[in-house]
Amino acid sequence: MADPQAPGPVSVQNVTGPHSGPHGTADPAEPMGSEPPQSELTASGPTASGPTASGLTASGADGPREPQWRVASSAIGLWTVQEIIGALFLLIPAMAASLFVPDAAPRWLVVTSDILPWALAAFFLAEVVVLPRYKYAVHRWEVTPDGIYTLTGWLSRTWILVPISRIQTVDVTRGPLQRMFGLATVSVRTASAQGSVEIEQLEAYTAAQVADDLSKRANLYDDDAT
């Protein structure tokens, strides 16, 4: 599932570049009419946008605009594995429990215990197939000229915009699963106890580039970012 097009030390443009999703061929031209580029990332950003922004996940009438870039496509694989693990944690006990229901139990209990594991299994199967793809379709992030902008959540959606001038620390973390998929998470913290932004499931190289770029630019601001 890993995105094949991330070879070694190439320019950021190639890496942040098009993870061509289910729809949306990346359109490398057309920089958006914004401020002069302050970083390579911002300059190269729009390459990842293209039609995705107006696709099936367009934010509709009510939200702010969507961040332009998708997470790495291998995130689908990672999320699938995570969902399977989570599902097994519930399924196995349910199956085991259904084995131990004695035949002498009330009829409704026996019937339920026969059906329930299969119903659960069907539900989880659907979830494992659908959810990662849906998440991939709705999760977005972007480094804007002045900030870091994310959109997460699939039922209730959360947009977070943090200006680079107020960044306190930038961390890159990689869990064991993420390592298997070549992914990483960038965590951006601010002075606010509740003001941290996480961009999950970026390609490791992209994550390192983003973290580096953000912390460099954050350091250009000469105050204590409060």
């Binding site: 009510d62 209730s156 200006p163």
Partner: peptide, 11 residues
């Protein structure tokens, strides 16, 4: 130091 916008389906 940042803005957060949240919207559930109901919202």
């Amino acid at each position: 130091v940042g803005w957060k916008v949240q919207q559930s389906l109901f919202q």
